[in-house]
């Protein structure tokens, strides 16, 4: 952990140095709320998927980050993964959000695990495996986490293509018994 706190621009610069071409885009967002308009700082980085480990290692060098969650989005030709990290927690009004975005093409849905650096990422990585059907390399525990045991193989709920939830799997509970109910009411009249 470094004693001196970097500015958001310096954080981006450090990533620029260690990733080189791997850093595809970066932006800094500041939002303020309340009477005093205290600012919250968000750093968004887009990197190459092969550089994910280096990026996380770089983050660990600044301060051991807090990983909130890994979220993802099916963009059609590829799946975008977003790693939501936070650094400088514990400093009053000084926390930075660092979101690392990387795209996995549908033809090559493989990404390195980061559980060796951050063991707490396991839950999130297991979740991504079962919901997006991607493969996390060297994951220590690849069992299903949230989906039931009898969930069909090859169906990935968050995918928007043919492997997503099919229409016939959706039970419209609010329709159950509606017609019979109407008949009953008509009879009572």
């Amino acid at each position: 952990m470094n004693d001196n706190i970097l500015t958001p621009e310096q954080v981006v610069e450090q990533f620029q140095q260690c990733l080189g071409d791997g850093l595809q885009a970066s932006r800094i967002v500041k939002r303020s709320e309340g009477l005093k308009s205290a600012e919250s700082i968000q750093i968004w980085l887009t990197i190459d998927k092969t550089k994910i480990k280096i990026a996380v290692q770089q983050l660990c060098d600044i301060q051991y980050p807090h990983l909130s969650v890994i979220s993802g989005c099916d963009m059609g030709e590829g799946i975008e993964l977003l790693y939501h990290f936070f650094i400088y927690y514990g400093v009053a009004r000084g926390e930075y959000s660092v979101t690392i975005r990387t795209t996995l093409p549908k033809t090559d849905l493989i990404i390195d695990t980061i559980t060796d650096l951050i063991p707490g990422a396991l839950t999130s990585e297991r979740e991504k495996q079962e919901f997006f059907g991607l493969q996390v390399l060297n994951i220590p525990d690849s069992r299903r986490m949230f989906l039931p045991d009898d969930f069909p193989e090859g169906v990935y709920p968050w995918r928007k293509d043919e492997t997503g939830i099919k229409e016939e799997m959706v039970k419209k509970l609010h329709e159950v018994g509606k017609a019979e109910g109407a008949q009953r009411r008509a009879k009572n009249k």
Binding site: G177, E180, G181, A182, R184, R185
Partner: peptide, 9 residues
């Protein structure tokens, strides 16, 4: 017991 009874619709 009947969520489609007259009072509920």
């Amino acid at each position: 017991t009947d969520r489609y009874s007259e009072e509920m619709v």
